[in-house]
Nucleic acid binder design. Structure first.
Lengths: 117, 117
DNA sequence: GCCACATATCCAGTTTTATAGAATTAATTG
DNA sequence: CAATTAATTCTATAAAACTGGATATGTGGC
């Protein structure tokens, strides 16, 4: 149905912005962590729960988690002693949108943007 | 309409695979290059044309282009003396699909996968 | 075969990541 | 305030990425 899939909105995203987010996801440990949170959905997971599942050193997890939260792809909410982590789905959608933005702008393409130059 | 957008197929993608592709896109220079090719669509662009637009050293472009082609995100076709580069849209779709795969598997979600565990 | 063109590889140097043990901060409970 | 739990920061080290100048390779024309 969609060749260039363009069904999401690109909101306030530029190249450097998007690159830093993709870089955050471009590490096996961080991607595993992110996907763990994607699966967990709105409920999220505590840092400790993530550590148990990923089986990596605490400091290593903290290092990668920091990268994901700083990029905005993961949000955190304190619940007394534990920190709940959640995937930021809106940002993911914006990122995906950016990747396919202006897809085939110089060509005919089934899924052209209405506002493409 | 879709909260977790899941309209593409995840084909032969695993975490390490996806991470290496995301890493390839997670650099401003490479992301600019990739988006240049996305805009160019099926017609693609020669390496020289990319260099003119990006204004970086030849060796630097070659370095980044190699990363993109090795990851499979960009394909190349020789036309006599020039190399035409094209974005691999199918792989991009697979990558996006992987990112949102099993989205909210542990939660109710509008766009659940039919085969999710 | 030689020359011009298009692109890749080699080779530094510099900067950035990734890892994890040890120490530290922060929040809760008694 | 001492003890406990949860998570981060400090520190060091090894590995990898990024850059661009110089050089090499492949391609086509004369």
């Amino acid at each position: 149905m969609t060749t260039c899939l363009r069904s999401v909105i690109v909101a306030g995203m530029d190249t450097n912005n998007a690159a830093s987010k993709l870089e955050a996801l471009g590490n096996p440990t961080r991607l595993s962590l992110y996907r763990l949170l994607v699966k967990a959905g709105h409920a999220g997971l505590s840092v400790g729960a993530c550590q148990q599942r990923l089986e990596i050193a605490q400091s290593t997890l903290s290092f990668h988690l920091k990268a994901l939260t700083q990029s905005g792809l993961v949000t955190q909410e304190r619940q007394s002693r534990t920190l709940i982590c959640r995937a930021n789905f809106d940002l993911m959608n914006a990122l995906v949108g950016f990747l396919v933005d202006e897809c085939c702008a110089d060509e005919r393409c089934q899924a052209q943007t209405p506002d493409a130059a």
